[in-house]
Design a protein around this nucleic acid. Structure first.
Lengths: 207, 207
DNA sequence: CTCAAAAAATGAACGCGTTCAATATTTTTT
DNA sequence: AAAAAATATTGAACGCGTTCATTTTTTGAG
């Protein structure tokens, strides 16, 4: 039977991932030692490294799930009609932020971001960066949709503006995860304030 | 003589810092081992840790010098008159970017940013964040100066806009240091493009 | 100058992520 | 079913940042 090996493999993969996410949530990323993860999964340390390139790779699975879900939710928001630019942006960005702590703690986000900056050549970083770009593109898409519907002025460069807005969203999210005190509502309020002038200026005036 | 101890201390501090920056530049931050730095400075590993809290602390001295200099240069730019918003922003931001690789390599920037995100409670991160905020404030100051001179519309929230612009500048800088291929000119061009719509919209029209 | 207290220097030892040569298991071949 | 080949598992060992008990140096009082 040639399926035995494959089945064991899939089973171990699942067990390791389960053990890792459990431990990450329980004791935090840094304090979760590979040795502990391996033991909880019932394998040796060496085997862990046969299944995952390194400790950081374990995070990517979670980050990826998180972002994929929020991208889907974002598409649904773009499809709807919107009163004005500020509201539309707040809705999309609010969805990003509201969803952000579903699977990942602030500490896990910090680790993921930190890794993606420190080692840009790794698959981890490249996957992370790719997800970021898809989010950025989604903000551009929203602005273009608003323009098509006559909410945003025709002379506005949607991609340039979308990137500007998204990079601010992203940078503010970094500040958010760096500060354990800050809550999502405070974050959303700050970003809304930062977006307000641009949102107002880029709107088609209706008076 | 009570100056002997103080003098030796200052001397060692300088020697360690010198050795560290030399090695960081020669072999990169990660490959520069504490043992090597200590040896080059003529002290033991333990002594290194009497002078610096950890390896990351060594970077902060350099980052700090870098940002202090660029802040001073930025003030000089704000003091000057400017044709239009886009040019003024490009000049200030261009100065930031041009100066950025004077003391630090991309790898050193990555490490510094990575550390500041990963361990926000540390003095390192807090100093880094404080420098970031001063830069952000400087962009706000520029926009306010332009507004006072009648270049920017009176109804624009300078702080909100300045933060938006700076966070984009910062995020783009992260992309820049993550990508060894990207050069400063490409970075400046991208940011100029992103700023263009906002710069145009917030300008007092002169037709 | 002597000596006890304070300050500084030291390097062996520790923790943890990661690697790798040796061993064990599964699959394929004969 | 035995042998050979392919694949997977293992845990001891390594590298490097960091710590800390011990030793050395400096200081100033007597």
């Amino acid at each position: 039977m040639s399926g035995l090996r494959a089945q064991k493999k899939a089973d171990k993969n699942r067990r390791i991932l389960e053990a890792a996410t459990t431990l990450f949530r329980k004791v935090g990323y840094d304090s979760a030692r590979i040795e502990d993860i391996a033991e909880m999964a019932g394998v040796s340390v060496g085997t862990f490294y046969n299944y995952f390139k390194n400790k950081g790779d374990m995070l990517m699975a979670t980050v990826s799930m998180e972002v994929e879900e929020v991208l889907a939710a974002g598409d649904a928001i773009i499809a709807r009609e919107h009163e004005d630019v500020a509201t539309a942006l707040s809705e999309l960005i609010g969805k990003y932020y509201d969803h952000s702590l579903t699977y990942l703690s602030k500490e896990m986000w910090r680790t993921a971001m930190s890794l993606s900056i420190a080692q840009p050549e790794t698959p981890f970083s490249q996957r992370y960066t790719a997800l970021d770009h898809r989010l950025s593109k989604q903000v551009c898409d929203l602005i273009r949709a608003l323009q098509d519907r006559g909410v945003v002025r025709k002379d506005v460069d949607c991609d340039a503006t979308g990137e500007l807005v998204f990079n601010n969203v992203n940078m503010m999210f970094i500040e958010f995860v760096k500060d354990e005190e800050m809550d999502v509502d405070g974050l959303k309020a700050s970003v809304a304030r930062q977006n307000a002038p641009l949102a107002s200026l880029m709107s088609v005036k209706t008076d």
